[in-house]
Simulated assay, not measured.
Amino acid sequence: MVGVVLSLTEGAVSMPASGSLAAIWDALFNSERSGLLGHEKIIVLELRLPRLLLAMLVGAILAQCGAVMQGLFRNPLADPGIIGVSSGAAVGAVLAIVLLPVAWQVWAVPSSAFVAGLLTTLLVYSLARSSAGTSVVMLLLAGVAVAAFAGAGIGFLSYFTDDTRLRELSVWQMGSLNGANHQQVLLALVAFVMLATWFQRRAGPLNAFLLGESEARHLGVPVERMKLELIVLAALGVGIAVACSGIIGFVGLVVPHLVRLSCGPDHRRLLPLSALTGAVLLMLSDLAARTLVSPAELPVGLLTALLGAPFFLILLLQQRKQWSLSGA
């Protein structure tokens, strides 16, 4: 709750907490209790509130998609950003931003991001898949290759775009919630409700996947259909998140792992708690991005990378230790 209030009140222009909350009450119930000036109400209702809601929804979506992919591949290193899904979705979004008129971009950007993210996910999965199962090493290597190719594609498009969009694309690639609006909040809300409901219904099969694919098959789980379904849904979530906020990495890696350490691997608890933790993490990261160098603003993706990159290295060291012990 403290983070919510600070997100509404802190920034380049400081606002009173009581007035900010009262402005939201006024907008909901058509009253006049806040006492804020007209431009102050615009700051709260049109800038900070949509940004707060979008940060929480994007964080929840990325965290849940990360938890699903980690359960699906049975490895804590599986993350939409690390295996290249976010980069692939970014290529689709950048294509729509650069090539299509602004009037078409409200729905064209998330649609392009979803299609590109889905194709990237299927490509990476097919490269890592063999008759012996899914190789985590191949998964990471394929993700690195796809991310490099996607980065080259984004750079190529940025080079040939006009100066007006170049600055926007540069900030967007680093992850930013600066352009949050009510349409994006509505899109992210619909996506989150749909994904959270569907993922929760698949908590049982995800728990079965933790035992291995053959064990899950013996338990009656339609393995191939379930994998395809969850991959498509995760790609949908990541595509919409990338379209709304740019590339925000490591949320899907860090959050599920932290929640798993505290509550265990049961996806019936892991999924909703990951959504809640992801929402809080990205909300606080965006608050820090707006206030650390105020009145300027840092891209929120830089802060999540500063948090997530060391965490990823720690996970890699743990995995190396496990491989060494198993080899011994």
Rank of each mutant, 00 (worst) to 15 (best):
I97W: 03
L302F: 14
V98T: 00
V94E: 06
L118V: 01
R129V: 02
V221P: 00
T9P: 00
A305G: 06
R217N: 02
F312T: 03
C65M: 02
F160S: 15
M138S: 12
L307V: 15
R225L: 01
W172P: 15
V280N: 13
G84N: 06
I240Y: 02
E229C: 12
F250E: 08
V144C: 11
F29T: 04
A145I: 01
F311T: 02
V91C: 08
A279V: 02
I61G: 06
W107V: 05
T277E: 09
V223T: 09
L140C: 06
N30Y: 12
L189E: 00
G151D: 01
L139N: 05
L210F: 03
Q200V: 12
L169S: 11
A243S: 07
S86N: 11
G308K: 04
L99E: 13
R269W: 15
M69P: 12
V146H: 15
G66D: 09
L45C: 07
L139I: 02
A96I: 09
A93L: 02
G11A: 01
I61R: 05
V193G: 14
G252C: 00
A55W: 00
W107P: 04
L119K: 13
R290C: 01
Q184A: 04
G252M: 01
L77K: 05
V115N: 10
T120S: 04
E40I: 04
P205C: 09
M56L: 03
L211Y: 12
A147L: 02
G252T: 03
R320C: 02
A108N: 11
V193D: 13
V300T: 10
G133V: 12
L276I: 02
P222Q: 06
A89H: 06
L37N: 11
G327M: 13
F199M: 05
E46F: 11
L177Y: 10
N181C: 08
W107L: 12
R167W: 12
V242G: 00
S135H: 04
H182D: 05
I43F: 02
L307F: 13
L236Y: 09
F192K: 09
Q105D: 10
G3C: 14
